[in-house]
Computed example of a mutant assay.
Amino acid sequence: MDSEALRVTGLSGGYGAVQVIFGIDLTVRRGETVALCGPNGVGKSTLVRMISGLSRPSSGTVLLGGRDVTSVPGAKRVRMGLTTVIGQQAFGSLSVRDNLRMHTYPVPRHHERPDTAVDGALAVFPRLRARADQPASTLSGGERQMLVLAKTLIQRPDVLLIDEFSLGLAPVVVGGLLELIRRLAAAGVATLLIEQSVNVAMSVADRMLFMEHGTIIAEHTPAELRESPDLARRLVLGGHAQ
Rank of each mutant, 00 (worst) to 15 (best):
Ile181Thr: 12
Glu4Met: 09
Phe210Tyr: 05
Gly87Cys: 10
Leu47Lys: 12
Thr9Ile: 11
Pro57Thr: 12
Leu177Glu: 02
Leu63Gly: 04
Phe125Met: 12
Gly239Cys: 08
Asp158His: 02
Glu112Val: 13
Gln196Ala: 10
Glu32Trp: 00
Val20Trp: 02
Asp115Met: 12
Ser228Pro: 06
Gly60Val: 06
Thr104Ile: 07
Leu6Cys: 06
Ile51Gly: 03
Asp133Phe: 02
Leu193Asn: 10
Val107Phe: 15
Arg101Pro: 10
Arg207Gln: 10
Leu26Glu: 08
Pro229Ile: 05
Leu82Val: 13
Arg109Tyr: 15
Leu231Glu: 03
Phe125Ser: 11
His240Pro: 01
Ala132Val: 00
Asn199Ala: 13
Ala17Met: 07
Leu177His: 14
Leu225Asn: 04
Leu178Gly: 14
Gly239Asn: 04
Met208Leu: 10
Ser228Gly: 03
Val189Asp: 09
Pro39Cys: 03
Gly66Ser: 07
Asp68Arg: 15
Leu180Met: 10
Leu47Ser: 12
Leu231His: 14
Val173Asp: 04
Gly141Gln: 04
Ile194Val: 12
Val42Leu: 13
Val198Trp: 13
Thr104Pro: 12
Val85Cys: 00
Val174Phe: 13
Leu153Tyr: 02
Gln89Asp: 09
Ser228Phe: 15
Arg182Val: 03
Arg182Cys: 00
Arg113Cys: 11
Arg233Ala: 11
Ala117Cys: 13
His240Trp: 15
Thr104Tyr: 01
Thr84Ile: 02
Pro222Leu: 09
Gly31Val: 00
His240Glu: 01
Ala205Phe: 00
Ala232His: 08
Gly92Phe: 04
Ala130Glu: 03
His111Tyr: 13
Arg207Val: 09
Thr27Asn: 02
Thr152Pro: 00
His213Asp: 02
Ala75Lys: 10
Thr46Glu: 02
Ala241Phe: 11
Gly65Leu: 14
Leu167Cys: 06
Arg129Gly: 04
Arg49Val: 05
Val48Ala: 10
Thr33Ser: 06
Asp230Pro: 03
Val20Ser: 14
Gly239Ser: 07
Met102Trp: 06
Pro73Lys: 11
Asp163Thr: 11
Arg56Leu: 14
Val72Ala: 13
Ala123Glu: 11
Ile86Arg: 15
Ser93Gln: 07
Thr138Gln: 09
Asp98Trp: 02
Gly10Thr: 05
Asp68Trp: 05
Pro39Glu: 01
Val34Gly: 02
Ile162Trp: 12
Gln242His: 14
Asp230Leu: 08
